[in-house]
C-alpha cells in the first residue's frame, strides 16, 4: 500500500479545499494565523540575534546585549566578513566571498552529477529491472546510513592516493567527488520511489515500440523527472553546502582552498580572538545561497516531495 499511497496525484495542488459552510466570524482562522505567527516568531529568534549582532560594533556585540538593537548600526562587520581583513583592528580574518564562490563550484556539479546518477539508478531499479535488483538497491541504500566518521581514516588514505596517483586536485574537486559518491544512495532512493509511482504503461508503451533502455530513459523518463530533480538537487545542494565533516578533512587551506563552512569555522572558532559581529555576519553570508534556493524553489520542493518522493 505504501508504495502506491501517493501515486498519481500530481495535480494535488489543484485539489480544491472543501469550503466549510461557515457563517459569521471565523475564529478558527484567527487562531490558526495567530499560531502560525507565533511559531514564525519563535523560528526567527535566532535569526534576529544573528542579524542585529552582525550590525553591531565591537563592544556592542556581546552575549549580554544579545537582544538589544545595535547602539550604532555599522556595516563594517559585513564588509570584513565578505572581503576579509589582513590586520589592524580586526586582525586576520578570512574573506567569505571567495569561499562562497568555491563552495558554489563544488556544490553545483556535485548536486547535478549525483542527481543524474541517482536518476539512472532509480530508473533501472524501478522500471528496467534485472535479477536481484532489490538486493542491489538495499546495498546502495545502506550507504546512506553509515556514520561517516567510521570510515574517515581509510577514506582519507584512498583520497590521498587518488590525489597523488591520478592527479585528483585537493580541496574543492576532491570534495565534489565525495559529495557525488555519498549522494548516490539518497538520490537513488528518491528517484526509484518516484519512478515506481509513475504509471507503468508509460514506459511499457515505449518498450513495445522497441525503444532501447537509453532511449526510453532519455525521451520518456527524463522529461517527467523534473519534480524529483528539484527535490534531489535541493537536498544535495543543501547537504553539500552545509557539510563540515568532509570539508574539515579534505578542504585543505581554510583561506584559499576550503568551502565556506571551514572558513566560517576558522572565523568563529579560530584559536585566537573571536569577533562576534564578524562571525555572525559571516554565518549569515554562508547561509544566503541555500536560503535563496529555498525561497525560489521552496514551492517546487514541496511539490516535488508530493509527486511521489516521500513514500516509505
Amino acid at each position: 500500500m505504501t508504495t502506491t499511497a501517493l501515486t498519481g496525484h500530481f495535480d494535488a495542488t489543484k485539489v480544491p479545499e472543501a469550503k466549510k459552510p461557515n457563517a459569521g466570524f471565523d475564529w478558527g482562522r484567527l487562531i490558526r494565523y495567530g499560531l502560525l505567527l507565533l511559531f514564525l516568531v519563535i523560528v526567527l529568534i535566532p535569526v534576529y540575534v544573528l542579524l542585529v549582532t552582525s550590525f553591531k560594533g565591537v563592544g556592542d556585540a556581546d552575549p549580554s546585549r544579545a537582544w538589544l538593537p545595535p547602539q550604532e548600526w555599522t556595516l563594517e562587520n559585513w564588509k570584513v566578513a565578505l572581503l576579509g581583513s589582513k590586520s589592524g583592528e580586526y586582525g586576520k580574518i578570512f574573506p567569505v566571498l571567495p569561499a562562497l564562490g568555491r563552495t558554489l563550484a563544488m556544490v553545483v556539479p556535485a548536486a547535478i552529477i549525483s542527481s543524474f546518477l541517482g536518476s539512472m539508478n532509480g530508473f533501472v531499479l524501478a522500471r528496467w529491472r534485472f535479477p536481484y535488483a532489490n538486493v542491489v538497491f538495499t546495498l546502495i541504500l545502506f550507504g546512506m546510513f553509515i556514520p561517516y566518521q567510521a570510515v574517515m581514516v581509510p577514506l582519507y588514505k584512498i583520497m590521498i592516493q587518488m590525489q597523488s596517483n591520478w592527479g585528483l586536485p585537493s580541496g574543492i574537486p576532491t570534495l565534489a567527488l565525495l559529495h557525488i559518491i555519498y549522494g548516490i544512495p539518497i538520490t537513488t532512493l528518491i528517484f526509484r520511489n518516484y519512478y515506481q509511482s509513475v504509471p507503468q504503461e508509460l514506459m511499457e508503451a515505449s518498450r513495445v515500440d522497441g525503444a532501447g533502455m537509453i532511449r526510453t530513459y532519455v525521451s520518456v523518463v527524463l522529461p517527467i523527472s523534473i519534480p524529483s530533480f528539484v527535490v534531489v538537487l535541493i537536498w544535495q545542494f543543501t547537504s553539500a553546502w552545509n557539510d563540515f565533516l568532509f570539508a574539515s578533512f579534505f578542504g585543505g587551506n581554510a583561506e584559499t582552498q576550503a568551502p565556506v563552512t571551514v572558513t566560517l569555522n576558522a572565523i568563529a572558532h579560530g584559536s585566537m580572538m573571536t569577533n562576534y559581529g564578524v562571525s555572525m555576519a559571516a554565518a549569515l553570508l554562508a547561509s544566503v545561497p541555500t536560503l535563496v534556493v529555498y525561497i525560489f524553489l521552496g514551492k517546487y520542493f514541496v511539490g516535488g516531495l508530493m509527486s511521489g518522493s516521500v513514500k516509505g
Binding site: L40, L44, A66, A283, L284, S287, T290, Y294, G298
Partner: peptide
C-alpha cells in the same frame, strides 16, 4: 509561501553557523 519559506529557512543554516548563535542563546 512566506510561512513555508521562513519555516524552512533554518534548514538552510549549517550547523556551524547555527552553533555560532545557539552558543549565545
Amino acid at each position: 509561501g512566506v510561512f513555508r519559506s521562513l519555516y524552512l529557512f533554518p534548514m538552510a543554516v549549517s550547523s556551524v553557523a547555527a552553533g555560532v548563535v545557539w552558543r549565545w542563546l
